[in-house]
């Protein structure tokens, strides 16, 4: 049989076996593994392999993806036992002839490799991931120095792929745990000098299932595809929380810049 070759990639190097965990919600069966033989061309990622399976071998395979370049954070999966973005993992770089693809753990499965991420988004929402100010609509920008920005800048890179919650051993056993993603984001807003919502976030973050549940296993930082280092954020957040007991954590709120008007006269 002639192997189909995908356009835009190099020559076929070898054939690898994809062992994909399948789950069909309509069939009421427990998830099981199915194997597919995929010819690997130079430059093919795991996502390309999955799309090859979908196009040529089994149309019923489902996976979630969007940008194919590690920006959208849709294609998180467990590849050979480690959480990775499928679009950023080269098949040849793995150097294995058998590739085991699982949906992310600690979430529900909608179908095959599609996880149910509402837990991630709900947790993210619960820590108020926005700048909390009294004014409804600020008329001018808040002032911030580059140094003040550096304090939180790295945590803004989070793409909400949810790999950290899948890797986290605490999330595995505690369903209500906020997770590294939400805690890192709460730290990002708490140390932002424009923010005034520390007290509001306390009841969510400073709780039994909040920041104190982390045991610093570092798995979240190890799997993060953007280098956000959520484990660092959680420990630094804990530092803020512990010092808050002795010296109240003060949020002054950045001063406003001059009021500006656009060319149309609308602010």
């Amino acid at each position: 049989m002639e192997t189909l070759v995908l356009k835009g990639f190099g020559e076929v190097v070898k054939t690898v076996t994809f062992r994909v965990r399948r789950y069909d919600p309509e069939k009421k069966e427990i998830p099981k593994y199915e194997e597919y033989k995929v010819p690997v061309q130079k430059g093919m990622t795991i996502l390309d392999g999955i799309l090859y399976i979908k196009e040529h071998l089994d149309h019923s395979l489902s996976a979630r993806y969007s940008c194919r370049m590690g920006i959208c954070g849709s294609c998180g999966m467990i590849i050979n036992g480690k959480e990775k973005l499928a679009c950023q993992t080269q098949i040849l770089e793995l150097g294995k002839d058998l590739i085991k693809v699982d949906p992310m753990g600690n979430y529900g499965i909608v179908k095959d490799l599609v996880p149910e991420l509402s837990k991630l988004f709900n947790n993210h929402q619960s820590v108020k991931p926005f700048i909390v100010r009294e004014e409804e609509e600020p008329k001018s920008e808040f002032l911030q120095t580059p140094d003040q920005r550096e304090k939180y800048a790295m945590f803004t890179d989070c793409i909400l792929c949810g790999l950290c919650l899948s890797a986290c051993p605490t999330s595995a056993s505690d369903e209500l745990y906020l997770g590294p993603q939400a805690l890192a984001q709460s730290f990002r807003y708490i140390v932002d000098n424009r923010d005034l919502g520390f007290e509001e976030r306390l009841n969510v973050v400073d709780s039994k299932h909040g920041v104190w549940r982390c045991h610093f296993s570092g798995a979240c930082s190890e799997v993060c595809p953007k280098g956000v280092d959520p484990a660092l954020a959680i420990q630094l957040l804990r530092k803020v929380m512990t010092t808050n007991i002795f010296v109240k954590y003060q949020q002054k709120g950045a001063t406003r810049g001059p009021e500006r008007k656009s060319a149309l006269g609308v602010s």
Binding site: Y23, P25, K28, P31, N80, G81, K82, P103, M104, G105, N106, Y107, G108, I109, V110, P115, E116, S166, A167, P169, A172, S173, E175, H215, F216, S217, G218, A219, E222, V223, A231
Partner: peptide, 25 residues
């Protein structure tokens, strides 16, 4: 119908591929 895919407490003892800190945990 979505199903649960929790790793459970047994995954505490699966530190492979996550680095030293995970092993120490």
């Amino acid at each position: 119908m979505t199903i649960e895919n929790k790793k459970g407490w047994i995954s505490w003892f699966n530190p492979f591929k996550y680095g030293t800190d995970r092993w120490m945990f």
